[in-house]
Design a protein around this nucleic acid. Structure first.
Length: 313
DNA sequence: TTCCAGGTTTCCT
DNA sequence: AGGAAACATGGA
């Protein structure tokens, strides 16, 4: 897996703010617009062109606003914290945003490939500069996958909000409340019955959320462990051992959290709809057809999927 | 009312 | 290995 090494130069202080370098193939507007398509999102707020988000770094919870600075930088401003002198916190926030926006991936090869691809041509032209906005926290990524199984996306956001507001923590800043996703440690201490207030579609999902929380809290499952696997196939094999995680959720997590470029949730119904839409089909494409159509996406399956999803909003 | 939704498990041949 | 049924709520 080729990833740009995170140099210590990728961010700098500007007074109390941070300036974060972004690659050439980056559009703040495209990413902001993508975030705005989420219905009933509980983990960030969009207001007047800025992205507000609570971020946990170690034991510290903090809230920042992210805005475009110039073609090569983002500005990260703290909310209600005029003097942030904790260097670990500053670096941690910079690292989180870098990861969230997937700033380490060079999209030039993807765009070059996509221009020749009948499925992707339209999407990359429409959304140039859009990044695979990720889910850096492993437990959050797995929960979001499990919550979203076999239900419509709008209801999935409702379930996430209930889960977050029942079991997460919140910070008050300038009269607003900002929520952080529940930690694996918090949920590991609960029983499936404790999660009943969330109103999950199946009782099993509550078990899955508690079981995976225990795996992560105990150190038996981690991003490091998954990154040490040889390839996507091996990482998928590790993940589907876990009850509640099938091929779709495994690839979804590898794509949004582990950032594996060739993760490919091929069973995703949204992907099927997007392909049907682009090709003007009457019915959803077969798996065989999708494999044919995606043959040229090698090592870019995750970005191809992300861009096709974007067509649906 | 019926169908489908960012699927997975379990139970069958 | 591969297929069918059960799961279960909410929106169109």
């Amino acid at each position: 897996m080729q990833r740009t090494t995170l140099s210590s130069q990728f961010w700098q202080n500007d007074g109390n703010d941070l300036l974060l370098q972004v690659p050439t193939e980056f559009s703040f507007t495209q990413n902001y617009d993508h975030l705005s398509t989420a219905t009933n999102e509980s983990l960030y707020t969009l207001k007047d062109g800025a992205i507000y988000k609570a971020i946990a770094v170690g034991n510290v919870d903090t809230v920042v606003a992210i805005t475009p600075e110039d073609a090569a930088h983002l500005r990260i401003r703290w909310i209600d914290e005029p003097q942030v002198q904790n260097e670990m916190l500053r670096a941690g926030v910079a690292r989180y945003v870098y990861d969230w926006f997937d700033l380490g991936t060079d999209l030039k090869p993807f765009y070059k490939m996509a221009e020749q691809d009948e499925l992707l041509r339209q999407a990359v032209a429409s959304f140039y500069g859009l990044r695979n906005m990720g889910i850096p926290d492993l437990y959050e990524a797995i929960c979001w996958g499990i919550l979203g199984q076999q239900i419509n996306l709008s209801f999935a956001y409702t379930l996430k909000r209930r889960f977050v507001e029942n079991f997460g923590r919140s910070i008050q800043r300038e009269g607003e409340e900002y929520w952080l996703f529940p930690t694996a440690e918090t949920i590991a201490a609960l029983t499936p019955e404790d999660l009943s207030a969330v109103g999950m579609t199946t009782v099993k999902k509550c078990e899955y959320l508690v079981d995976t929380a225990k795996l992560i809290a105990s150190g038996k499952l981690s991003k490091d462990q998954l990154l040490q696997t040889q390839n996507v196939k091996q990482a998928e094999k590790e993940l589907v051992k876990i009850r509640g995680i099938g091929p779709w959720t495994a690839h979804y997590v590898l794509m949004r959290c582990l950032r594996m470029p060739d993760a490919f949730p091929i069973d995703d119904v949204g992907l099927h709809h997007a392909i049907r839409h682009v090709l003007g089909l009457d019915t959803k494409p077969s798996k065989e057809r999708i494999l044919e159509l995606s043959a040229g996406w090698t090592a870019w399956e995750s970005y191809a999927t992300f861009y096709l999803w974007r067509l649906l909003y």
